[in-house]
Write a protein that binds this DNA or RNA. Sequence first.
DNA 1: GACCAGGCACATC
DNA 2: GATGTGCATGGT
Length: 221
Amino acid sequence: MSTREKLNRIYELLEAAFGPQHWWPGESAFEMMVGAVLTQNTSWKNVEKAIANLKARGLLSSEKLRAIAPAELAALIRPAGYYNVKADRVKSFVALVAERFGGDLEAMLGRPAAPLRVDLLGVRGIGPETADSMILYAAGRCTFVVDAYTRRVCRRHGLIGQKADYDAVKGLYESHVPPRVDLYNEYHALLVAVGKHFCRPTARCDDCPLACFPHDASAGL
DNA sequence: GACCAGGCACATC
DNA sequence: GATGTGCATGGT
């Protein structure tokens, strides 16, 4: 089976097992982008509490978050963990929106994926995964999001080597999966689903929808 | 009580 | 260039 066929089959199996994932939760592009920072190495459940705090105070806009004091922001996002670091990262993000795009988020998101990605990666606290999440889920542009689950699934199924980096994994998907926003959206969400339920650090391959493929649960993370 | 969660920047070797 | 460490809450 070729890599292309295998990635296609994996998608089919995951879709059949988990169904539509309806990512990304969030009422606005801005909310999704703030959520992307807050969810770094953190469960979405905790992020929801932090978002709710911001929403309850009407702070979910680049203008409001730009004006708020860092310590106050940190206190509000406390449930999401790493609150001091993340407060600084959110501040850096809204500074980009204000300073480079005059506060016009739509103008920023309307740009092609490549230059948008460069701008986002220039923000302190926005790395490749956060940038790609923002581009795919908030801007609705085609880029494949790689996370710890994606790497783990790929390693255990022999699709990548033990030390494949972010761009190598991203390149694997982008060169073998048709570049459609809805497909990339769903594929990433499904990889997270199988990662949460089965492909965990401590192996739990029984009943995994991908157990029919050769796998090595001891491979990687 | 250990382990894990939709990472990233920075220090050190 | 590779590896290690700090950041922190909350669920299992």
